[in-house]
Write a protein that binds this DNA or RNA. Structure first.
Length: 471
RNA sequence: GGCCCCAUCGUCUAGCGGUUAGGACGCCGGCCUCUCACGCCGGUAACACGGGUUCGAGUCCCGUUGGGGUCACCA
């Protein structure tokens, strides 16, 4: 078996969206699984719609996803001379011809066909004229009049197209720039791409491309058309379906591996398995298990999977992703032991990095105020005693982990007759300022003895002041 | 409209002629418990329809219906 060579050819007319990322992922996984090559190619032959910003956004998104490439990025806009050489060869071999029919004529032809209830297609006016090259001539491919072209799709099986359905399509514009089908085929030939995995919206283009491969005397690659991703209304994914750019998910605090995991499972399966690490994906991915029907993008399942990835990843791997969200909130935390411990207490209760960052704030900033409802319930004059006892007991405490802290609490519970909750909730308010937080002991351990006690004392002071004032 | 593709719980899917049709998300109960979560246990819910083929069809064939894609000097 030859080395598998796949590619991802986005056209830079906008951000990398979920569907594009999924196509890139399938190609990347297939190449990685087979120890082959994955090539990135920018299809920017549409000078009007292609932008540099889009190119950068695509690079940025791919890098974040961890989808790397072995070759490229190639830019079609820099390869016009190559396309022209192939086009001229096609003309020389009688497989293509110059056509001077005006756009207006073509349009009339189309309208007429429509009026007759027929399919709009080029009528072949210039097909046998043997016209020479000229500044206003386009080049058309001379499609065989009869016969069939068969697409042997590894995912869908054979699909037969009648050549009579295909008209003499343009392969080079009058300005000399190549059309999509021509550029793609020339690139895939010259880049030695032997496996093409793409969305099934490309199926109807494929016979034209196969015809082009044959006319150029090249081997036809293996094609695999994967089902598309739909919105919740079963329509093709678009902006109106909400956040669809890869970058948007980064901003919402998603973990790239989780997004990859979700995307690949939309259309591919490995038995009942739902959770995959990236390494596992590379190991287990195969085209055999790609389904044929379109799938609806489900943000809730993605969220659940994201939570699961965050829960199971080690703190060291999570930290770099969390940092930007902390700095967004004015905390210039650095990646250190403390951050890792912070993350460990937050992992299980965070579905996204946004949630994790919110939950981590109190570790870096002592509470400036206490949650109103919580204070009303747990920070009353009668709660002061427990906090005071706690502050004293804790200051005698050297070890600050759950095992050594638990007896301290037990002792106070015995002395005061209070239940654990009656001590823990006021303490939680003192430490966090809120009624929601990680477990009391793990939190104290991370915060450390000094910080824990000072926050308790601060709370006692506020409480005393309050009770004095209201007395 | 022509051509092409697709069809299992609401959603993603397993199934590859004989299953009580399985898992996951969601939803609904319960357990655990220092808050919130995590976790655990249980429940809800599907083979689009009609013909064949077969001793036997979710699985094979045909049709219907439904959904999607594509018909540019866009990619």
């Amino acid at each position: 078996m030859d080395t598998i060579i796949t590619r991802f050819p986005p056209s830079p007319t906008g951000y990398l969206h979920i569907g594009g990322a999924r196509t890139a992922l399938f190609n990347w996984l297939y190449a990685r699984h087979n120890r082959g090559k994955f090539i990135l190619r920018i299809e920017d032959t549409d000078a009007v719609r292609s932008t540099k910003e889009s190119v950068d956004a695509i690079f940025d998104a791919l890098a974040w996803l961890g989808i790397d490439y072995d070759e490229g990025p190639y830019y079609q806009s820099q390869r016009y001379d190559i396309y022209s050489a192939y086009v001229e060869e096609l003309v020389a071999s009688g497989n293509a011809y110059y056509c001077t029919c005006s756009a207006q004529r073509i349009e009339e032809m189309r309208q007429a066909a429509k009026a007759r209830g027929e399919n709009p297609r080029y009528d072949g006016t210039c097909r046998e004229k043997g016209l020479p090259a000229s500044s206003d001539a386009v080049v058309r491919f001379k499609t065989p009049i009869a016969g069939n072209t068969i697409l042997e799709d590894v995912i869908r099986g054979n699909i037969v197209f009648s050549n009579s359905e295909i008209d003499d399509f343009i392969i080079r514009r009058s300005d000399g720039s190549p059309m999509y089908n021509l550029a793609v085929v020339v690139d895939d030939i010259t880049m030695k791409i032997n496996t093409i995995i793409r969305g099934d919206d490309h199926i109807s283009n494929t016979p034209r491309q196969i015809l082009l491969y044959r006319a150029m005397g090249a081997n036809v690659p293996v094609f695999g058309h994967v089902p598309m991703v739909l919105g919740d209304d079963r329509a093709r994914l678009s902006k109106r379906h909400g956040a669809m750019s890869v970058t948007a998910y980064r901003e919402m605090g998603y973990y790239p591996d989780a997004l990859l995991n979700y995307l690949v499972r939309l259309g591919w399966s490995h038995g009942d398995q739902e959770f995959f690490s990236k390494e596992e994906l590379i190991e287990k991915f195969s085209l055999k298990n790609v389904g044929k029907s379109a799938g609806v993008f489900n943000p809730e399942k993605l969220l659940a999977l994201n939570a699961q990835h965050i829960h199971s990843a080690p703190a060291e791997r999570l930290a770099p992703h969390l940092l930007p969200f902390l700095s967004e909130r004015g905390i210039d935390a650095r990646e250190d032991k403390y951050l890792h411990r912070v993350i460990c207490t937050l992992k299980a209760r965070s579905k996204t990095f946004v949630e994790m960052a919110e939950g981590a704030l109190f570790y870096y900033i002592a509470p400036q105020s206490y949650d109103e409802k919580g204070a009303k319930k747990f920070l009353q004059p009668e709660n002061i005693e427990a906090l005071v006892k706690l502050a004293y007991a804790l200051s005698d405490q050297d070890a600050f982990d759950e095992k050594s802290l638990a007896p301290v609490f037990q002792k106070i519970m015995d002395e005061t007759g209070l239940g654990f909750g009656k001590i823990a909730q006021p303490l939680r308010l003192a430490l966090v300022g809120k009624t929601v937080s990680p477990g009391i002991f793990e939190m104290m351990e991370v915060l450390g003895k000094g910080e824990t006690i000072s926050r308790i004392q601060r709370c006692i002071a506020v409480l005393s002041g309050k009770s004095d004032a209201s007395a």
